[in-house]
Design a protein around this nucleic acid. Structure first.
Lengths: 230, 230
DNA sequence: CCAAAAGTGTTCTATGTACACCCATGC
DNA sequence: GCATGGGTGTACATAGAACACTTTTGG
């Protein structure tokens, strides 16, 4: 992505336009983000938020979706536009506009071979390596938005497999928000919000088996203007 | 803005990039939005959200700010990025990416001559004329965001002159939100939020003179995650 | 029978909502 | 002195927060 010669082909008549994706997932009971090694002339351990040049044949969102499919094998992941970065001094060599999306990938769903081919690596969000340009700021902003979004809407289950236990869901919220939530209050509110429903199955393991839940496809995507957590 | 020949100069190697501004103001006790007549080959009474091509010398936000200064005479108006529209079928002739901002202009502040030069006209938001492409959808979204933002943060006074009475501020909220608010509750909450402070001046008119307030420049811009209204 | 995780209600506190009258000024 | 908008407090309802024990399974 940092190849000036490729991107300045238009002789600086216009901004260079690219799409970047902040891809979050759960990894080892932590919130993780996928990064790709920087291709520019940097000291070795510099990473960047993965992305692609804009494709004139496709809409911005199509390009983002297809990138997700190609690198994660996801057909239907949560995807939302984050912000468009267009400061003139972002890139040292040419004016660069980055339309940034953020995506949520279920915990078990990222397909190893695809990720490897795109040389993406998953880092815990509170232990990311050095990053190019303003990418650390972009990541920080994406995190804020994810946390904010989690409080007011109900995107938590987008990071979980199709069915999940309430404890797993609560864990997800706790990991992202970085706080402990009360079990009884959590259950009551998430159930009253009506966005998940129980399935006939249960999960066995250590301790008492847990009821499995799934997202209600008919539920409204955004719980309107009402804070869920904390 | 709808001159294909001008925008396809790069021979379709890239998307065409433009900045649009949804400029809100108060007019005749209604929420108004500035529109410009469509320059394209349309039947006469079609309008559009005003904008400019991206300028490679400037950041996106600089371009937006300068457009505001040029057309409204505003040095410091509220400006916020709304969304970046990049569907492939937006424009019939070429792929067009619009980075859209929304702006709030104080009631008395728009300078007639400048507006006229840019041929901008102010329409009440619930009586806008026909608009090109997806501009009506963009406007609707901007309105939703403005209302949402008003509930959780405190941008209301951006639509008022530097000093204002509490009744004027309440009026502004009622106009935008489209609901009536309780006077006592409104006053209590807006004052407890600590975003405005009284000035030594009062305004005379019909009835008892009213205390004038102003925005506290040192107040945090966003009242964090706490709903103010309704 | 013990360890480990699932599941379940009630009390208290804070926040939001509804509501009606007196005050200061200009004419 | 009266019309006009400015200004003020309290009681009630609702939502959120804090809190501990019983249940079901596997080993």
């Amino acid at each position: 992505m940092n190849k000036p010669d490729k991107f300045t082909a238009t002789e600086k008549l216009q901004h260079t336009l690219e799409i970047r994706l902040v891809i979050f997932t759960l990894k080892d009971n932590q919130l993780g983000v996928f990064l790709s090694p920087s291709t520019g002339p940097h000291p070795s351990d510099v990473w960047e938020i993965p992305g692609v040049p804009s494709n004139i044949e496709k809409s911005l969102e199509e390009t983002a979706t297809q990138y997700l499919t190609r690198t994660m094998g996801m057909e239907e992941a949560y995807l939302e536009q984050l912000y468009t970065y267009g400061d003139s001094d972002r890139h040292p060599d040419y004016p660069l506009v980055s339309v940034v999306y953020f995506a949520l990938i279920p915990a078990d769903a990222s397909q190893q071979e695809l990720r490897k081919r795109a040389s993406l690596r998953c880092f815990p969000v509170n232990a990311v390596p050095g990053m190019v340009m303003d990418h650390k700021l972009i990541l920080d902003y994406a995190l804020r938005r994810l946390r904010y979004k989690l409080e007011y809407s109900a995107v938590g289950f987008e990071l979980l497999p199709e069915t999940f236990t309430l404890s797993e869901l609560q864990n997800t919220y706790e990991i992202i928000l970085g706080v402990n939530l009360d079990k009884r209050n959590f259950r009551r509110r998430i159930l009253e919000a009506g966005i998940i429903e129980s399935t006939p199955h249960r999960r066995s393991g250590e301790g008492r088996p847990a009821q499995l839940y799934r997202y209600r496809p008919d539920a409204i995507a955004e719980v309107k203007a009402r804070r869920l957590f904390p």
